[in-house]
């Protein structure tokens, strides 16, 4: 699964309220509507700037806070194809895999907004094309990679009817 995209950089502890505020998420199941407000409290222009396939890059503890799956879904529906962070909060990490949003744990200190990156999760490769640098990534457990490759847990269940760890 190879992904190529341009980056938007954020800081540490980007919580799920920042990704999509509770004031929007309780009202609707229309994820396109939620996508208009993604990251709004950190960057009001983000939803307008983001292009299909772009990456969100952040520091430590990305996605901390609530269990709202609307957070990865709002990012996906805004066109974001992967989030790269030096660490993730665990519920967000699970939700991202379950909804088919690629998550990459790596040292993000050398990545700047606007850099173009190439990611291959199966091969465990990350390349900063703008700076011509390879970056090491923490491998995703095989089962989670399988769910991600299936397109998320819904597709995984449609395929197997239950959890298939094998």
């Amino acid at each position: 699964m190879e992904l190529r995209g341009r980056t938007h950089k954020f800081g540490d502890d980007v919580n799920t309220d920042y990704i999509i505020s509770g004031k929007y998420k309780f009202k609707t199941l229309d994820m396109k509507e939620l996508a208009k407000h993604v990251m709004e409290d950190l960057d009001p222009e983000f939803a307008k700037k983001v292009q299909p396939g772009d990456f969100v890059v952040a520091g430590r503890n990305f996605g901390c806070g609530s269990s709202r799956e609307q957070a990865p879904l709002a990012l996906l529906n805004a066109g974001v194809s992967a989030v790269l962070a030096s660490s993730f909060a665990r519920i967000f990490y699970r939700n991202a895999i379950n909804t088919g949003l690629a998550v990459v744990e790596c040292d993000t200190s050398g990545i700047e907004s606007g850099d173009e990156l190439l990611v291959d999760l199966e091969k465990g490769l990350l390349r900063n094309l703008t700076r011509e640098k390879e970056i090491a990534i923490k491998p995703i457990p095989p089962f989670m990679l399988k769910v991600l490759a299936d397109g998320g847990l819904v597709a995984h269940f449609r395929k197997y009817g239950t959890f298939n760890l094998g």
Partner: peptide
């Protein structure tokens, strides 16, 4: 422990 909506569905 807390999980997301799709985990709950599963």
């Amino acid at each position: 422990t807390g999980v997301g909506s799709t985990d709950l569905a599963a």
